[in-house]
Structures are given as structure tokens and as C-alpha cells.
Nucleic acid binder design. Structure first.
Length: 554
RNA sequence: GCGCCCGUAGCUCAGCUGGAUAGAGCAACGGACUUCUAAUCCGUAGGUCGAAGGUUCGAAUCCUUCCGGGCGCACCA
């Protein structure tokens, strides 16, 4: 929509230049925005103010010149005026909006789709929680944000893949296997001493029980060394399976699950080290192998092979990201918990060492979630916390509310998640406020049908009965949707969608209370239904990006 | 000590990559259902944008310093 306006202004500027009234060298970037107050106009530009300096004229004088040329550039412009220090406010004809409204409706589920992404191949990696225990609420936020972002980027025209990186090697896997093994022996009556640094959660006991059910006591006679591989694999597979299930229940699926172990199996890690060595980015000190990351974005060098000969997590991460690039991804996005932010510079250093601009790599930090119950903080400690897992929260408040709460705030601010509020079906809960609007619209359509109104989406409906300013306010809001998606994608900020929907829907609720849709006036009824259909499509598409359902009845 | 994030109404947060008189929800107060879902609507009140400087036509937004809160600073992942 704004592109059209930009185009008009561009034309006016060119005419002004050709007539010698403006110099315009270089030709300026045109910014079109919505005025502060809708009463001031449909669109506004500050172009006259930004030109003030280079043209050596005062902004209002420049605005007057532009306005003169703008007036006859298109019939769609119904009003052009100068305001304040030099803003040019324009108002568009009803036809301009109605035509675009029809266009939106005809796009249906695709409405909102844009092509800013230009088909660029991009990967977003998120959650990637270690398979050593169930997902907790923090992972839940990461999952919701990553999944929504993926949907938004697709909608914005990127060629997107999602991936979950499974850290299935290393010491933690040994601890995991050993934890299960110990619980297994305990179940079979042996006395054990359970170390503090092992996984103490009850889920380990559940897994041990499964081993007992499957294998009986056959491992009792074996040495730890012999049976550990089995326990390690079984525990990992079980937990990973649980994670996949939890995520699926939460509406989150991945295009690919990438195993860290596979990087060792195909020698990628070794090759990556060799390669870095050839590039001269590696040296040895104190019996360990170091990456000279301080030569790049990092503030110190990092160990990649310990003096014990074991590779660090960071080491396989190098191979992993090399692998991503080799698969042809032009942009890599990683979501991480904010507590890992110290990791960012060294990863950027890796990309730079590989010879890439660190701009192709974007790490989004997702801040912590505080779980509240009626305003009181719920303990998150592993021992006492009853509502710490994602599944528990989803079971209590539902998928829609949980996802909404994770997505409603900018992900770089701490989130207070109030369980009581999230499951409350009340006005102060924005999820239901938006869903209710959708259900209400559907209800109006049911009423219309009962009243014998014949309606179908593809029929050529006369929209001229739409004259109310409130109706145009809704239309303008609907038509802004593609721009919201676009901005949301470029800024990688998911919360914009929920704010957009909230604003959109509150206009509708107000409109609803003041206007009757289904009435004696046939043509007015049809035109208004058409508008509500567009609105319904927009709400649905917006919710789709958030992974939230749009119920037809509530 | 060093680095990253945050500080906007009583509370929770927006503020569109520098623009017009700083917004919304909740909470508070006052109104609106014989009419398509009151899970709704309308109105009132509420502010030194943490503080001080700087950059310019113009700053909540950009820069510097300080204060306050969170999180990091491993041969853990």
C-alpha cells in the first residue's frame, strides 16, 4: 500500500526536478508512514523536511512545491495538505482502498504474503535443548518465537528451513547414561550412591523403569563400561522422543533434526579443525588446541580441543555452522536463551574465520520467563518447581494462550507469564479478546445465513455502501497487514503480529457495538459482510503466523 | 573489574530502524444488554520517557557518563 504512495511522491519529485524547481541530487529516499492521528490523513511523508538542508529552502516551501505536482499525479489521491513543520499528508480515494480490499480477499489465505525475502535461502535454528531432560518454559518461549518467526519469514518470501541441533555427544551424554544406569540398578534392589552432578529428575527413574520392563536384569551382570552405551542411547532416544512429542503438541515441528554426533561420524569436525589450521587460525598452548578468535569479534581465544584430547562443544559448533553454509544457506539465524549471550562473539568470530561477513549470522537472544500464579512468582528450581516444564504449562493454560503469551512481548525483554491470567477467559486476557472477535464475525455470518442472505466470497459485491469512517479505519488496518509481516520479518520481531491483531480487533469490537451488519438494507448488508470477511481472513492469517487457532464459536 | 540486555502511567508493556499534542491493556472510577455472542462497548483519571550532558530544524529513539535491575565472563554444554 505504502509502495503505491511512494510511487506517487516519486513521480511528483521528478516532475518538480524536470521543471527546475528542485535540485534533488542525490535523489532522496522517500519515507511514507502513517500520520500520528488518523484525522490528519491516510499517509504522510516527511520528505520536505529531509530535503530542507540539501535544497537550502525551508521545509514548508519545499512541501508546497511537491504538493503542487502531487495533486495531478493520480486520481487516487483525493486530498493533499501540508501540516506542522512540513509534513505532507495525503488522503486516498475510497476506490483506492476498496480495490485493494478486494485484492486482499481474493488472496485469501495468502493475504499478507510478500516477497521482501526474495527467495533467499535462510536457516533458523532454535530450541536445540540438550536431550538430557524435558523442555521447560524457557525452551517454550524459544520454541514459540522460533516457530512464529519461521512462519513469518516464509510469509515474507524467504526460502526457509528450520532445524533443531541435537547435542548427542560428550560428557553430558555419559552423565545421562550413567544416571539411568544407576536408577536401573536401584530399581533392581542394589544400593547406589547418586552423584550430585548427575541428572536427578524423576524422568530418569521412569526411563530406568522402561529398561527394566524391556530388558529385565540382564545388565546387572555387566560392567558399567559394557552397558553404558546402551543406557546412553536409550535415555537419549527416549528423552528426544519426548521432546519431539512435546513440541508437536505445542504446534512446533522442524524440517530437520541435526545430530552433533553425525559431525564426528563423517569426520566433519576433524576436517574443520584441519581447515582452520591451514588458514592459520589455530595454535597449540598448554597441551590444548586454541582458535585464535580474538583476531576477530571475540575478546579472547577459545579452546577447541582440550588437553585430554576431547573436543569442546564449541569445536563441533564450528563444524556445524560450516556445514550449514555448505548446504547453501545464505543467512543463518540462531535463537538462544539470553544466558548464552556470552557465546555470541565467539560464534561470530568463527564465521569471520571462515571468511564470511558476520552479518550473515544473526543470533536472537530470548530473555527469561518468570512464571507467576496470580501475581506470585512460581519457584523455578528443579526440586520444588511444580510448573516448570513446557508440557505442564501447556496442559494448564492451553496451546493458544501459551503461545500467545510467549509471543506478545518483544523477545528481548523479560516475560512475566501469569498462569491464572493466561487461562482466564476474561477481557484482560488478550488471546480471548482476539479469538472472540473472530468467533463473533463467524456468528454474524451464521445469522446472515439464517436471515436468508445469500453470500459468497467470489461474488462481485458492490462495496459503495461502505462509507462510514470507521469502516475505512478497519480497511486501512487490514491493508497494513502485509507491511506488518514485512517489517516483522526484517526486524525479526514476532510481537508485532500480536500488537497488530490487537489493534485490528479492537476496531472491530467498537464498530460492532455501533453498527448493525445484518439489516433490512440488502446491499449494505452484503458490503459489510464483505468487509468482515476480509477482517476474518486477516485475523486468521495473523493467528496462523503465531500458530494460534481462530475458533468459529466460543 | 569487563561485556551484553533492560529502565516509558500504580502494574504489564507498545512506540513502526530521528518526526506532529508520548500510546494500549490491566487495575481505579462512572456509564451501556427487549437488537447479529456483554469473553463486548463508551467515558474519566493517570507521565520530569531512570539522571545529566551532547549531536540537529526536531531525541523516548542516536553518542558519552552516571544510577538502578537482569544475565554472562570455562580446557561445561
Amino acid at each position: 500500500m505504502k509502495i503505491a504512495i511512494k510511487h506517487f511522491i516519486h513521480g511528483a519529485l521528478e516532475s518538480a526536478r524536470d521543471a527546475g524547481e528542485l535540485e534533488l541530487s542525490p535523489f532522496p529516499e522517500i519515507l511514507v508512514e502513517k500520520p500520528k492521528d488518523e484525522k490528519m490523513g491516510d499517509f504522510s511523508t516527511n520528505i520536505a523536511m529531509t530535503l530542507a538542508k540539501s535544497e537550502r529552502k525551508n521545509p514548508r516551501a519545499i512541501a508546497e512545491i511537491i504538493t503542487r505536482y502531487l495533486s495531478n499525479v493520480s486520481d487516487d489521491l483525493s486530498e493533499v495538505e501540508i501540516a506542522g513543520p512540513g509534513f505532507i499528508n495525503v488522503r486516498m480515494s475510497q476506490d483506492f482502498f476498496l480495490q485493494r480490499l478486494r485484492n486482499a480477499v481474493s488472496q485469501g489465505n495468502n493475504f499478507g504474503q510478500t516477497d521482501v525475502g526474495k527467495g533467499i535461502k535462510i536457516m533458523i535454528e532454535f530450541v536445540s535443548a540438550n536431550p538430557t531432560g524435558p523442555l521447560h518454559v524457557g525452551h517454550g518461549r524459544g520454541a514459540a518465537v522460533g516457530d512464529a518467526l519461521a512462519r513469518i519469514l516464509r510469509k515474507a518470501g524467504y526460502d526457509l528451513s528450520t532445524e533443531y541441533y541435537v547435542n548427542d555427544v560428550g560428557n553430558q551424554m555419559n552423565f545421562l547414561g550413567r544416571s539411568t544406569w544407576l536408577r536401573y540398578k536401584e530399581l533392581l534392589g542394589e544400593n547406589i550412591e547418586f552423584p550430585d552432578d548427575h541428572y536427578r529428575g524423576d524422568y530418569i527413574k521412569t526411563i530406568a523403569k522402561e529398561v527394566v520392563d524391556l530388558k529385565g536384569d540382564e545388565f546387572l551382570s555387566q560392567s558399567e563400561q559394557d552397558c553404558l552405551p546402551y543406557f546412553r542411547k536409550f535415555s537419549k532416544d527416549t528423552i528426544l522422543g519426548g521432546i519431539k512429542n512435546d513440541l508437536a503438541d505445542f504446534g512446533v515441528t522442524f524440517d530437520n533434526w541435526f545430530s552433533e554426533e553425525s559431525l564426528y561420524e563423517d569426520n566433519s569436525v576433524e576436517k574443520a579443525i584441519e581447515w582452520l589450521r591451514e588458514q592459520g587460525h589455530i595454535y597449540e598452548k598448554d597441551g590444548a588446541v586454541w582458535l585464535k578468535s580474538s583476531a576477530f569479534s571475540d575478546d579472547k581465544d577459545r579452546v577447541i580441543v582440550k588437553k585430554t584430547g576431547e573436543k569442546t562443544y564449541f569445536c563441533s559448533d564450528i563444524a556445524y555452522h560450516q556445514n550449514k553454509i555448505n548446504r547453501g544457506f545464505k543467512k543463518l539465524v540462531n535463537l538462544m536463551g539470553a544466558d548464552h549471550h556470552g557465546y555470541v562473539p565467539r560464534m561470530e568470530a568463527v564465521l569471520e574465520a571462515m571468511g564470511y561477513d558476520k552479518k550473515i549470522f544473526k543470533i536472537l537472544l530470548v530473555q527469561f520467563v518468570s512464571l507467576l500464579r496470580a501475581g506470585e512468582k512460581v519457584s523455578m528450581s528443579t526440586r520444588s518447581g511444580e510448573f516448570e516444564t513446557l508440557t505442564d504449562v501447556v496442559n494448564e493454560v492451553g496451546v493458544d494462550a501459551a503461545r500467545y503469551y510467549f509471543l506478545m512481548r518483544s523477545s528481548d525483554t523479560h516475560l512475566d507469564f501469569d498462569l491464572e491470567l493466561a487461562k482466564k477467559e476474561a477481557p484482560e486476557n488478550p488471546v480471548f479478546y482476539i479469538q472472540y472477535a473472530h468467533a463473533r464475525i463467524c456468528s454474524i455470518f451464521r445469522t446472515a445465513e439464517e436471515e436468508g442472505v445469500v453470500w459468497n466470497r467470489s461474488a462481485e459485491i458492490d462495496l459503495s455502501p461502505l462509507v462510514d469512517e470507521e469502516e475505512y479505519a478497519i480497511i486501512r488496518a487490514i491493508l497494513a497487514f502485509p507491511e506488518v509481516v514485512e517489517k516483522s520479518a526484517l526486524a525479526m520481531e514476532v510481537h508485532r503480529i500480536s500488537h497488530f491483531l490487537l489493534d485490528l480487533v479492537s476496531r472491530f469490537h467498537g464498530y460492532y457495538s455501533r453498527h448493525r451488519v445484518v439489516s433490512e438494507d440488502k446491499s449494505l448488508t452484503l458490503a459489510r459482510l464483505y468487509l468482515l470477511d476480509a477482517l476474518r481472513i486477516t485475523i486468521r492469517n495473523g493467528f496462523e503466523l503465531m500458530g494460534i487457532s481462530a475458533p468459529e464459536k466460543m
